[in-house]
Simulated assay, not measured.
Amino acid sequence: MPLSSRIRAMAAPHWLTLFGLILAGWVALYAMALPPGMVAAANLYGVEFWQSLCVVTPDLAGYWGVAAMWAVMVAAMMAPTFLPALATYDDLIHSGAATRAGFGLLLVGYLMIWLGFSAVAAGLQITLYRAGLVSPVGQSLTPWLSGALLIGAGAYQFSAIKEACLTQCREPLTFFMQHWRPGLRNPIELGLRLGALCLGCCWALMLLGFVGGVMNLAFMGLATLIMIFEKLPDLGRHLTKPLGWGLIAAGIAAIANALI
């Protein structure tokens, strides 16, 4: 589809709803990352709910609060990386092979996988916090943990699992042709499959949030861009392995600095 036609197609209600949800997710993340002084100022203006929204540390929020924070974070970060697959599905809508209802179900299936990841990541954050390895905002307190996460994520960039998952994520039309079946149940199944593939691509990069801080907006923005670029066929092939070497080098440097 030509670029001009694609832009016009993305003004449809289902696209505008998706963009609105992504924007709402990033606004919520910004609110949760507000410094205490700004939270107090918001309360002076009668916006009491900001305070509870901004309490996301394990000692105050508990497991479910941290899990909710992770759920918002992965939805805001991972939904944009799913746009190429959604655009391909939208082409199928215009050809008459798919429906707008299927578009929503595809996204629901995809996000269900990442909600599962959120539940696990929240448990991991609380475990690391109680062990004294990360701060209340989820930032590593030891270069050994930072180094291990960086080296592990870098090494994973060269793994066969990462390559297999990326190959399918970069070719959504081929994926849809392989797994297409009639009926409204199929879009959910397709979303679950694509969510699992995306998880296989990105879980190690997401855990790097413990290096820079889970609620670090700069990290989240950079990580989102990297994961989007990695899924682009032309650009991603030239990004994956250099990124892996860079992460390994950063991990070694972190550990080396601790030994000096």
Rank of each mutant, 00 (worst) to 15 (best):
I252E: 01
G65I: 11
L150K: 01
K231W: 01
E189S: 13
L259K: 08
A28R: 03
A160Y: 02
W114L: 09
G62S: 09
M1I: 06
A223V: 15
L53I: 11
M177F: 06
L207H: 13
L53N: 07
M10G: 03
V66M: 07
A87F: 07
K241N: 05
P36Q: 05
A68D: 06
P242M: 08
A196K: 13
G138T: 08
T167K: 11
W144F: 04
L247V: 03
K241M: 03
D59Y: 05
I248C: 15
A153H: 01
Q157A: 04
G183I: 09
A164H: 01
I126T: 06
M73F: 08
L166V: 03
R237W: 07
Y110K: 03
K231Y: 00
L199M: 14
G132F: 05
R8W: 08
M10N: 03
L199E: 09
H14N: 07
T99I: 01
V55Y: 09
A249Q: 13
A68S: 15
M77I: 04
G132I: 10
Q51L: 07
K241F: 04
L44M: 13
Y156L: 06
T174D: 13
M32S: 10
A33T: 09
C54Y: 10
M220Y: 00
L166W: 00
F176W: 05
T57Q: 13
A218C: 14
Q51H: 11
C169Y: 02
A164R: 02
A31M: 13
A218E: 15
K241Y: 11
S4Q: 06
K162Y: 01
A40S: 13
A121T: 10
F175Y: 05
I22A: 07
Y63R: 00
S5N: 10
G96S: 12
L141Y: 05
G221N: 13
G246C: 06
V27T: 12
A61M: 04
L259T: 04
V120A: 15
G102W: 01
G183N: 12
L16N: 06
W70L: 12
W15H: 03
Q157D: 01
R237Q: 11
L115C: 09
A33R: 07
A71G: 15
G195P: 15
S118M: 01
I260A: 08
A249I: 14
A223M: 14
P187K: 00
L199W: 15
G65Q: 15
G138C: 14
L247A: 02
L16H: 05
A218H: 14
G200K: 04
M77W: 04
V56I: 15
F176Y: 13
G200C: 10
L34P: 10
A12T: 08
I151V: 15
K231Q: 02
T224F: 07
V74Q: 12
V211K: 02
C201N: 13
E163I: 08
G109W: 11
D234L: 12
P58I: 06
L29C: 15
A160R: 12
P233S: 11
A148Y: 00
C169R: 14
S146F: 04
Q125Y: 11
L199R: 12
A9L: 08
V56Y: 09
T224H: 06
L34H: 09
V214R: 10
L235K: 09
G200Y: 02
P242F: 13
G109K: 10
P2S: 10
L205Y: 07
L205T: 05
W15C: 05
L247K: 01
A75P: 08
